[in-house]
Design a protein around this nucleic acid. Sequence first.
RNA 1: GGUGAGGUGGCUGAGUGGUCGAAAGCACAUCUUUGCUAAAGAUGCGUAGCCUUAACAGCUACCGAGGGUUCGAAUCCCUCCCUCACCGCCA
Length: 423
Amino acid sequence: MLDIRLIRDNPEQVKQRLANRSGDFASLVDEVQSIDTQRRAAETERQKLQSDRNRISKEIGIAKKNGQDTSAIEAEVRGIGSRIEEIGREADVADARQRDLLLSIPNLPHEACPVGSTAEENPEVRVWGTKPAYDFQPKDHTVLGAALGMLDFEAGAKISGSAFVVYRAAGAKLERALISFLLDLHTTQHGYEEISPPLLVKSECLVGTGQLPKFGDQVYHSAADDLYLIPTAEVPVTNLHRDEILPLEKLPVNYAAYTPCFRREAGSAGLGTRGLIRMHQFDKVELVKITTPETSMAELESLTANAEKVLQLLGLHYRVIELCTGDIGFGSAKTYDIEVWAPGQGTYLEVSSCSNFGDYQARRMNLRYKDENGKNRIPHTLNGSGTALARLFVALVETYQQADGTILIPEALRGHFGAEKIG
RNA sequence: GGUGAGGUGGCUGAGUGGUCGAAAGCACAUCUUUGCUAAAGAUGCGUAGCCUUAACAGCUACCGAGGGUUCGAAUCCCUCCCUCACCGCCA
């Protein structure tokens, strides 16, 4: 969330920067400002009364010791007590309201974030490789997957419904090989610590990373236990340090985690739903960083480079685009998307979204660090997929398909997969 | 799930209704002394909010969480959560 002091001191600047996002947040900023004024007035009044009560109560203690009658003075304090309760309720209501408002205001786009209103205005940053050419009509992964016995969408629908899939045989093995390939790459070559977190988390975690309260309809929730299935490893992994004050030596924190991800995808039925592209459950290796504010922008570049390395090693053509202010995520200050080419689809697929959240998530989860002067400061958090598995699977299978219907396994993956081709 | 014990500051650990934000020790920081790879002493050392500010200071809250009793709660009562031990169940 945003710093209330920033809003208090520079409301126009905040509104102006939020205006570049999609959605109108100016009225929320106005409201949070007026609530803040009310809250502080009530808080000041309450604290003055509490101070009075503390002082008089001490006097009562002393008087009683001296055997004096204190009934009159006690009655007076009783009156203060009820006023404290009254004004305190006001202060608490304002405080809760202020927090709610702050939680539903998105992050300010970074100065470096290109201004634009829709995805069409996202600038292309760079391109790696070229679209592969085929002397035959490249097939879709669903066709290839069915022919080679790798993907069973009917079985997925039978046991769990639409947008669920069963990986089988070489498909299951390829998925597993990709997971360990990705984790090995990031842990041994890029310096990340491997994390295997719980997949069910408390609501506080989702508030911390920004999915709640606004996007509650996108996550699966177990009401009986009040636990949520994670929509991304970003949630448990970033929240590892919620409510902590990290020593400076610990920064930057670099974590890599493989987890399944669960998304309700409410409202996106029929949107790019072909095959594996939008599932309720998919695997992903996520990269998470916690850094000082001074280094976060450089770390975003290296995080993105770490994710790109995956596609380079697998020999998959991709491009990197930067999200403009109108397309950027709720909590992000700056985001790069990596899109891999899928020949069977004839389109680019988003396999990674690398974002710098600035202090937005850290403030929500009360995450701080001690700087060199021993002062508590708010660090920056970053995350990016390294990469999403289902779409990587699509790109890989479609890119490396051969005229005879078999699929070549790229060199870098053979050690993990244990064979040179499928079929 | 059952029974028992317990949750206090970075750690250990006192504190069972009144000047306790909390003894003491450890750790840490600064300084002093002796001196030289260590010891002794002094001082400081939680988090957040409010009010102010050049800065300091001041005030309030926080002793697992939430409620209650009271003029006053770390301390008494209730509910919940968590940890540990044993039992039960179980991959």
